[in-house]
């Protein structure tokens, strides 16, 4: 939902970042306001996953230029866990398996870390159990998921739903979904999309990174950005996604090359 004067949650200016000495992001500029859903689309290798990891503070990526401001604060100064506690959530493209750590414990520790950060009361195991059971409905997950090790032996769809469950619990201000739709069958896709729609409020914002248009049948973005060659080469409304679906990315890649020169 676009509102003229809502708060700026994320402001990225001329962001340049590299991994192992290779420059991937070559000047990304983007502004996200409260209540908005943004989609970043692009081919593999265009830099969209890198963009999400840089926002979350993955240690493999080095920012060599530009700025990221999150709710008025210099995001690059914050450690990854502090970014998370401040309300940045990344739904992983490939959620990690953590053997030996129960999903319930993981969720509780994560939840309480955020509570503590905001000076709120931490929940004990019993109160947390109640809270988490309510949230399970958002992604139509069975309570038996809670007793299993984090993502261990989960199917691809279960892993992605687990990400959305975490998002429901942590109530982020900026949720970044990195190709959450990839590898999902249509039912799982709908569950994930419904979860996302339920969690969108006028106070938070979402950055949905995707390769395909099909998620956008269920999650309607306010803005669609197309990334190519490490830059956002075009921004439009939801109709841009449809155009991409028809024409492919090729014509925009040419635009990117042209602007790079």
């Amino acid at each position: 939902m676009i509102r003229e004067n809502s708060d700026v949650i994320l402001s990225v200016q001329d962001l340049v970042a590299e991994v192992e000495g290779t420059e991937i992001l070559k000047g990304v500029t983007l502004k996200v306001r409260a209540g908005e859903i943004h989609t970043v689309m692009g081919l593999n290798g265009s830099g969209k996953s890198t963009f999400s990891k840089v926002l979350a503070g993955h240690p493999d990526y080095t920012v060599t230029g530009g700025t990221i401001t999150y709710r008025g604060q210099d995001l690059l100064e914050l450690e990854p866990e502090d970014r998370a506690r401040a309300g940045i959530f990344l739904a992983f493209q490939y959620p990690l398996e953590i053997p030996g750590v129960s999903n319930l414990d993981f969720l509780r520790v994560a939840y309480n870390a955020r509570q503590a950060h905001h000076g709120h009361e931490e929940l004990d195991a019993f109160d947390f159990d109640e809270l988490v059971r309510d949230k399970l409905d958002v992604v139509k997950m069975d309570a038996s998921f809670l007793g299993r090790s984090v993502n261990e032996g989960f199917s691809g769809g279960e892993k992605k739903r687990n990400e959305i469950l975490q998002m429901a619990l942590l109530e982020p201000t900026l949720a970044i979904l990195d190709e959450t739709d990839s590898g999902l069958d249509i039912d799982a896709l709908k569950i994930v999309a419904e979860g996302v729609n339920q969690l969108a409020t006028p106070d938070n914002a979402m950055l949905v990174i995707t390769h395909y248009q099909r998620l956008l049948n269920y999650v309607v973005p306010d803005y669609v950005h197309v990334m190519a060659g490490g830059r956002i080469v075009r921004t439009g409304g939801k109709e841009l996604a449809l155009e991409l679906e028809e024409r492919g990315y090729e014509w925009l890649s040419d635009v990117a090359e042209a602007t790079a020169r």
Binding site: A56, G57, H58, P59, D60, E79, P80, E81, R83, A84, R85, F89, L90, F92, P95, L96, I98, P99, G100, V101, S102, D105, F106, V109, A110, A113, R114, H117, S149, Q166, L170
Partner: peptide
């Protein structure tokens, strides 16, 4: 692995707590 640790950190859990949880589980 670093990626596992990053996953914990991205959920607001410090690296020390992450290691401690994984070790306890192990």
């Amino acid at each position: 692995g670093e990626d596992q640790l990053f996953y914990f950190q991205q959920r607001g859990i410090s690296m020390e707590d992450a290691i401690s949880m994984m070790i306890s589980g192990f």
